[in-house]
Simulated assay, not measured.
Amino acid sequence: MATTVAVPPDTSQDPDTAALIDAGTLSRPHRTRVPLPRWLRRLAGPALVVAVWQLLGTLGQINPRILATPSQVAVAAWQLTSDGELGTNLLASLQRVVVGLAIGVSAGVLLAVLAGLFRLGEELIDSTMQVVRALPVLGLLPLVIIWFGVGEQPKIALVVFAAACPVYINTYAGIRGVDNRLVESGRVVGLGRLGLIRHVVLPGAVPGFLVGLRFALTSAWLVIIIAEQLNATSGIGYLMNQAQAWYRTDIIVLGLLIYGLLGLLADSLVRLLERRLLVWRHGFNGA
């Protein structure tokens, strides 16, 4: 019994058909995709959480005295903004965090440079900082109040302490983590001690500093939440503490959202610095 084998048509003699096949014009037409901006895709997750949260509140599954709905939080934000109370307290919190970060980050960088570049500095500073960073920040609150009273100084002091330690640890690790082959290459091309520090060591420590700065920003906002709820007359933490007495969960949630948004904004600023200062580094961006 003869077997019939289907033989595809020979297109080797037809250059036009072969060109069409190679170009993919005979294949199935593809759809044109319109890519969404990355920031919009990143908002999809939080937006879904807010939608579910609002739905559960509308259906009565969440007691508003326990957790206010997003719409109630929005109404509270509008009321506090209209009478100026929100802006005044937000400005007070920002001032405390900015001053504390300026002092803490500067102190952390200075100590890290001294400990990272000089052996004597390492022996005098590093062991002390390792002990200090193990201390609980909020555990120092009673002692800080005794030292500075109940005004602005204890709140700023706690932010300084919370910011200085992560900046020191990561900057110091960045300095000591510079590849020694780069240092040797710098010596080969004629760089002296100051030239090595300026062109090799300090630029190589920038990634570590930025990691420390990111942790410092987060720690500063965490600390100021507690500091402003004790012996304070202004600030977002003070506003939340006052709302607790009246079971105003809408204001409490609003304060938490403000802290979260400020932390996200601060992290975005650090990411911008990374893109500007680390243009020479190409890392993995995800598959």
Rank of each mutant, 00 (worst) to 15 (best):
L213S: 03
G195V: 03
G192T: 03
W147T: 02
F161V: 09
L141H: 00
E184K: 14
I197W: 11
G212R: 01
S219D: 08
V159N: 06
V200E: 05
G204S: 04
G192W: 01
Y168V: 04
P154F: 04
L194F: 14
R176Q: 07
P203E: 10
I169W: 00
T233M: 12
I197Y: 11
I145Q: 03
L138C: 09
V178F: 13
A164Q: 14
F161L: 14
R181F: 10
T171V: 06
R181A: 15
V167I: 06
A227S: 10
Q153F: 12
Y168A: 03
I224C: 02
S219Q: 11
P166S: 06
I175S: 05
I224L: 08
V160A: 07
L217M: 12
V201N: 02
V150L: 15
Y172I: 09
A164T: 05
F209Y: 07
G186P: 03
V200Y: 10
V160S: 03
G149V: 09
L210W: 01
G204I: 03
L230H: 13
W147M: 02
L222F: 12
A232R: 04
G177V: 11
S185Y: 14
L210A: 06
I224A: 01
W147F: 01
W147C: 01
A134Y: 07
L217A: 09
R187T: 08
P142I: 00
A220R: 02
R187S: 07
V200M: 09
L202N: 05
R193P: 10
L196V: 10
A157F: 08
G151S: 06
V223R: 00
I225M: 11
V206A: 12
A173H: 12
W221N: 06
L210S: 01
G212W: 01
Q229C: 06
N180M: 10
R198T: 12
V200S: 07
P154I: 00
V137K: 11
V167A: 07
L182V: 09
L138S: 14
V178S: 14
A134D: 07
V201M: 13
Q153H: 10
L196N: 08
V178R: 08
G195E: 09
V137R: 14
L202M: 13
Q153Y: 09
C165Q: 13
G204M: 05
F161D: 03
V160I: 12
I145E: 04
I145V: 11
L217K: 02
I145G: 08
V144T: 07
Q153P: 03
T171R: 00
K155A: 00
L140P: 04
Q153T: 15
G192K: 03
G192V: 10
V200F: 04
L196Y: 08
E228C: 00
E152R: 06
G195W: 02
A205W: 02
I226K: 02
L210C: 05
V183L: 15
V189E: 09
A157T: 07
Q153A: 15
I197Q: 12
G208K: 01
E184F: 13
V223D: 00
I146C: 05
L182N: 01
F161N: 01
G186Y: 04
V150Q: 14
N170S: 13
L210I: 06
G151K: 08
F148K: 01
P207E: 04
L222E: 10
A173C: 09
P136I: 11
L158M: 13
F161E: 05
G174V: 01
F209W: 08
